[in-house]
Nucleic acid binder design. Structure first.
Length: 876
RNA sequence: GGGCGUAUAGCUCAGCGGAAGAGCACUCGGUUUACACCCGAGCGGUCGCAGGUUCAAAUCCUGCUGCGCCCACCA
C-alpha cells in the first residue's frame, strides 16, 4: 500500500455519515460559484426554471421529487459542459396564502377586515419572509444546484412589471375584457374562482319536483337547489315538446312569491330529462343565465356574497343551506311538492382551496379571451416546438386547450397583483402600464381586485429572465430547455405558460420540453394528506437518511407520468446503497486505487478486468441514453444493479485475488479499480451528489465532481471472450455455492476440490479466483471425492469433485436433482413440442429456431447428467 | 355523461410478440478483516376474467369485471 492511499483512507470513516458532511459540501459548491450561470459564455445553454413553490408552508415530498429530478438533469448538463441555469423562485399563491394568514388571524380572533387592506398585506409579507426562508433552507438541504443570485418571487418588482406589461398589452389587443357573467363564487373565500379552481364531487342531494301555477295552467319543474326558485324569472321547455305547446308564451304563478313568470321555449332544454320543464334562475345558474339572455329575462339576485338569502320575505337572512329545507317545507305546506327523490347523487362544485360548495354568482369580473391564445398553445405542441413527456399526456393537454372557456382572472382578494385599471368620472377606464402615469384627481380609483395567482406564474419562464427588458439572460435562456412539473398542474400552469409565453415572446415557445412527473403517494398508494395523517415529511428523511438517500429513493420511483408509492423501507434501501458505494470506494482506496494514471493496455489485463471495463462502458452509454428519455427509475436501477451486483459482488472479490498476486497484476488492478470507480461516481453524481463528491475528490484529488466531465463511452469493442469466461466463472461459482449450501457446508469452510474440463472452458487462469469465490481449495494428498457434479458452460463442461469428508447429505442431493430433473424435463417437452411443429420451424426467424434448438439440447444434456447422478447416489 | 389509464411474486413496480423480472418482505446458513446499512443460498406468479388474431401472446384485438385519474352547465 502506498503512503498516499493510507493517508487518503484515514479520512474516510467506515460508514457514510451524511449529516456531518452535506451542509459543508453544499456551502463549498455555492462559494465556488458552480451554480451561477453566465449568459455570455461560449457554452451551449441549458435552462430550467423552477416551478415556484407556494409560500404557504414548507416543501412536501412532491417538491422533493421534482427538485431531485431537476437537479439531476441540471447537474448532468453542467458536467456535459453546458452553461446551466436552474433558476429558483417562489410563488405568492394569492388565495392559498391569504387563506393561511386569515386562518392565523382567526386564531387571534380577528379577521382581515379588522386590520384593513394595507396592514393585512403587510402581515402576509411577514408570513412570506418566514415561509420563504424555510423553503430556501430545504432546497439547500436537498442539494439543489440553483443559481441563488437569480432567485425570484412572483411579486418582485421586476416580475410585477412583467404583469403590468402583459396585462396592458392584452387589454389593448382586446384579449382582456370586463363583463358581467355567472362565475364560480366561493362564499367562504368571498371571491370568484376560475373553472379549474372548482373541483366536482358526486354529492348526495335531493331532487324535488315542484308545481308552478295552477290547474291546466301549471307545470312541474325539478331542482336540487330549491332556494333558487326565489330568483326564478321563467320556466323553459323545449320548443317542440307537445306536452307544453299550450303553455308557451303564457305565464304561471311562482309559488311563495306570487310573481307571474313566463313559460319560454328554448332549444337547450332536454325534453327527455325529468318533466322536460326547467325553472330558470338567470342570476344563479350559468345555463339559466344564457337562457335569460336569449329571452331578455331579468336576472334576480337573491343571495349576497356569503350566500345568504337577500330576497325579501320569510327566508331573508337565511344561509342557502338553511333556506333550502325552509323553502321545501313552505312549498310542501302549500301542496306544491309533487315528488322527492333522495338520496340523489349529482356533481357538486367545491372550492379547491377550502372545500366550500361553490355558488354560481352573477358578477362583474375581468376575463382573458383565451381562444386565440389557446389555439397557439395547442399548435406549438402539435407542430413539435414543444414536446410533452410522456406523450400520452399530450392528449389531455389538447383536450383542454381546444375546449377552453374564457379565463376569469379577477379575484376579490387583497394578496396579489392588483388589477392595473383605474375608473374615473364619466365612466372613464384607464389601463395603466408599468411606465404610465397613474390618473389622479377627483373621482379616480383603482379596481380593488387582484389577479388570479396563475396570471403571474404564467409569465415565469420569461419574467424571471428580465422581460419586458431585453436582457442578456432573456436572449440566452429563453426558450427554457425544459420544464419539470407534475401532471396535476398541466392546465393550471403549463397550458397558461404556453399561452402567455407564445403571446409575449412573439411566437417563441416557453420551453422545448415538458417532463411531467407523477404524484408521490404513501406506502399503500394513497394520496398523502394532512387529514389522512399519512404525510411523510422530507425533512424527516433528510435528517434520518440524508439527502442522497431521499433523492435516490424519489428518482428510483420516477417513471414518466406515473405516480409512485414511497416508504421508509425504500429510503433505508437507498441509504444502504450509499453506504455500499462508500465502502466499496473505500476498499478500492485501501487497495491503493487511483484514477490518475492511464489504464494498462488490454493485453496486460485479465478477463475480469476487461469484463468490468466493458460493462462500465455499457452502463455509461445506457445511463446516458436513459437520461435523455427521462427514464429515471430505470437508470437508477441500472446503476444500482451495476454497482452492487456486478462491481461489488463480483469484480471486487476477483480484484482481491488479483491484488494478492502482487507485482504488475496488482498495479493493473489498482488502475482498473480507479477507472471504474471514477466512472461510476461521475454517473451517480447527478442523483446522489454528496456521497459521490466526497468519494470522488478523495479518489482523484480533483476539485469537484460538480464541474467534472460527464463520462462518455469509449466506443471500445467489448471483449466477448472475457464476458463469456466471466459468465462461466459466475455460473460455476454459483453452482458450487448452491451445492455447498444444500449440503450444509459452513460458508467459511474451505473444501478440497478438483475441477476438470476447466481448460475446455478456458478457465485455467481464473482458477484461483474461482477457488476464492467458491471457497474451495486445492485437493490435498488425502483427497477423496465424496461428491461430484458437472456444470455446463458455454465453452464446455466442468466436472467438479468435492471432498466433503463423507458427510454427503444424500437426501438433500436427491431432492435437488429431482427438482433439476423435473425442470429439465419440462423444458425438453416444451422445446420439442415447438420444434415438432412445422408451422413454427417454417415461419419463425432462423435465430429463434436456433435458440429453441439450443435450449432443447441443454435440457437433454441436463436430463442425462441429472439421471446419471441420481443413479450414482447411494440408496440412502 | 364523456375521455384516459391500469390490473404481473406478500408489498411497490419494471417488462409490452419469441425461455416470467427487480427492490423490499420472508426462509435457511454465515466472525468471508470494504461494508451486518453486510455476505451466500433459497421460497414465492396458470402475468384480473372470457373470447379472438398468430407457428408463438403477460405482451396485439374485442368484450366483461375491479381500481384510479381527468374533463363535464342535465335542471
Amino acid at each position: 500500500m502506498t503512503e498516499t492511499s493510507s493517508r487518503q483512507t484515514t479520512d474516510l470513516p467506515p460508514a457514510w455519515e451524511p449529516a456531518t458532511v452535506e451542509a459543508e459540501l453544499y456551502q463549498r459548491w455555492v462559494d465556488a460559484g458552480y451554480f451561477g450561470a453566465d449568459p455570455h459564455s461560449e457554452k451551449p445553454a441549458f435552462c430550467i426554471v423552477i416551478p415556484p413553490p407556494n409560500v404557504t408552508g414548507s416543501l412536501h415530498m412532491g417538491h422533493a421529487l421534482e427538485h431531485s429530478l431537476m437537479d439531476a438533469l441540471t447537474r448532468r448538463r453542467r458536467m456535459q459542459g453546458h452553461e446551466t441555469l436552474w433558476l429558483p423562485g417562489m410563488d405568492h399563491a394569492g388565495i392559498a396564502t391569504q387563506n393561511v394568514v386569515e386562518r392565523e388571524l382567526a386564531g387571534e380572533g380577528r379577521s382581515r377586515h379588522d386590520l384593513g387592506r394595507e396592514e393585512f398585506v403587510e402581515r402576509v409579507w411577514e408570513w412570506k419572509a418566514q415561509s420563504g426562508g424555510q423553503i430556501l433552507n430545504q432546497m439547500r438541504r436537498l442539494g439543489d444546484g440553483v443559481d441563488w443570485s437569480r432567485e425570484r418571487f412572483t411579486m418582485d418588482e421586476v416580475l410585477s412589471r412583467a404583469v403590468l406589461t402583459i396585462f396592458k398589452r392584452l387589454f389593448e389587443d382586446g384579449l382582456i375584457y370586463r363583463a358581467e357573467r355567472i362565475i364560480n363564487w366561493c362564499p367562504r373565500c368571498h371571491t370568484a374562482l376560475s373553472d379549474i379552481e372548482v373541483e366536482h364531487t358526486e354529492d348526495e342531494g335531493e331532487l324535488i319536483s315542484i308545481r308552478y301555477g295552477h290547474g291546466a295552467a301549471s307545470i312541474v319543474v325539478a331542482t336540487t337547489r330549491a332556494e333558487t326558485m326565489l330568483g326564478d324569472t321563467a320556466v323553459a321547455v323545449h320548443p317542440d315538446d307537445e306536452r307544453y305547446q299550450h303553455l308557451i308564451g303564457t305565464e304561471v304563478e311562482l309559488p311563495l312569491t306570487g310573481r307571474m313568470i313566463p313559460v319560454v321555449a328554448d332549444e337547450h332544454v332536454d325534453p327527455e330529462f325529468g318533466t322536460g320543464a326547467v325553472k330558470v334562475t338567470p342570476a344563479h345558474d350559468p345555463n339559466d343565465f344564457e337562457i335569460g339572455q336569449r329571452h331578455q329575462l331579468p336576472a334576480l339576485t337573491i343571495m349576497d356574497e356569503r350566500a345568504v338569502i337577500t330576497a325579501h320575505g320569510p327566508f331573508e337572512g337565511l344561509d342557502r343551506f338553511e333556506a333550502r329545507p325552509a323553502v321545501v317545507a313552505a312549498l310542501r305546506e302549500q301542496g306544491r311538492i309533487v315528488a322527492e327523490k333522495r338520496p340523489y347523487l349529482h356533481a357538486v362544485g367545491h372550492c379547491t382551496r377550502c372545500g366550500t360548495v361553490v355558488e354560481p354568482r352573477l358578477s362583474l369580473q375581468w376575463f382573458v379571451k383565451v381562444a386565440p391564445l389557446a389555439k397557439a398553445a395547442g399548435d406549438a405542441v402539435r407542430d413539435g416546438r414543444t414536446t410533452i413527456h410522456p406523450p400520452e399526456l399530450a392528449k389531455r393537454y389538447f383536450d383542454w386547450v381546444d375546449n377552453m372557456h374564457d379565463w376569469c382572472i379577477s379575484r376579490q382578494l387583497w394578496w396579489g397583483h392588483r388589477i392595473p385599471v383605474w375608473y374615473g368620472p364619466d365612466d372613464k377606464v384607464v389601463c395603466v402600464g408599468p411606465d404610465d402615469e397613474v390618473p389622479e384627481g377627483e373621482g379616480w380609483h383603482q379596481d380593488p381586485d387582484v389577479l388570479d395567482t396563475w396570471f403571474s406564474s404564467a409569465l415565469f419562464p420569461f419574467s424571471t429572465l428580465g422581460w419586458p427588458d431585453e436582457t442578456a439572460d432573456l436572449a440566452r435562456f429563453y426558450p427554457n430547455h425544459l420544464l419539470v412539473t407534475g401532471y396535476d398542474i398541466l392546465f393550471f400552469w403549463v397550458a397558461r405558460m404556453m399561452m402567455f409565453g407564445l403571446y409575449a415572446m412573439d411566437g417563441a415557445q416557453p420551453f422545448d420540453h415538458v417532463y411531467l412527473h407523477g404524484l408521490v403517494r404513501d406506502p399503500s398508494g394513497k394520496k398523502m394528506s394532512k387529514s389522512r395523517g399519512n404525510v411523510i415529511d422530507p425533512l424527516d428523511w433528510l435528517d434520518r437518511f440524508g439527502a442522497d438517500a431521499t433523492r435516490f429513493t424519489l428518482a428510483r420511483g420516477a417513471n414518466p407520468g406515473a405516480d409512485m408509492a414511497i416508504s421508509e423501507e425504500w429510503a433505508a434501501g437507498s441509504r444502504n446503497f450509499g453506504n455500499k458505494l462508500w465502502n466499496a470506494t473505500r476498499f478500492a482506496l485501501l487497495q491503493g486505487a487511483t484514477a490518475a494514471g492511464e489504464l494498462p493496455s488490454r493485453e496486460e489485463l485479465t478477463d475480469a478486468d476487461r469484463w468490468i471495463l466493458d460493462l462500465t462502458d455499457a452502463v455509461v452509454s445506457e445511463v446516458d441514453r436513459m437520461f435523455e428519455d427521462y427514464q429515471f427509475a430505470k437508470l437508477c436501477d441500472a446503476l444500482y444493479h451495476f454497482t452492487w451486483d456486478e462491481l461489488c459482488d463480483w469484480y471486487l472479490e476477483m480484484a482481491k485475488v488479483q491484488m494478492a498476486e502482487g507485482g504488475e497484476r496488482a498495479v493493473a488492478t489498482r488502475a482498473v479499480l480507479g477507472h471504474v470507480f471514477d466512472r461510476v461516481l461521475r454517473l451517480l453524481h447527478p442523483l446522489i451528489p454528496f456521497v459521490t463528491e466526497r468519494l470522488w475528490t478523495t479518489l482523484t484529488g480533483g476539485e469537484s465532481l460538480v464541474v467534472a466531465e460527464w463520462p462518455t463511452a469509449t466506443g471500445q469493442r467489448a471483449d466477448a471472450t472475457a464476458a463469456r469466461r466471466i459468465a462461466g466463472v459466475q455460473k460455476l461459482v454459483t453452482e458450487v455455492r448452491r451445492f455447498r449450501s444444500d449440503q450444509g457446508v459452513k460458508p467459511g469452510q474451505r473444501v478440497p476440490a478438483r475441477l476438470s474440463g476447466v481448460d475446455a472452458a478456458g478457465l485455467t487462469e481464473l482458477a484461483s479466483g474461482i477457488a476464492s469465490l467458491a471457497r474451495i481449495e486445492a485437493p490435498g494428498d488425502g483427497f477423496t471425492a465424496s461428491a461430484s457434479f458437472e456444470v455446463a458452460l458455454s465453452g464446455g463442461t466442468v466436472h467438479v469433485e468435492l471432498d466433503l469428508s463423507g458427510t454427503v447429505d444424500v437426501a438433500a442431493e436427491r431432492k435437488r436433482l429431482a427438482k433439476d430433473l423435473a425442470a429439465a424435463e419440462k423444458e425438453l417437452a416444451g422445446t420439442e413440442a415447438k420444434l415438432g411443429n412445422p408451422n413454427f420451424t417454417d415461419k419463425a426467424p432462423a435465430e429463434v429456431v436456433a435458440k429453441i434448438k439450443a435450449r432443447r439440447d441443454v435440457a437433454a444434456a441436463d436430463i442425462e447428467r441429472s439421471t446419471a447422478r441420481l443413479a450414482r447416489l447411494p440408496k440412502d
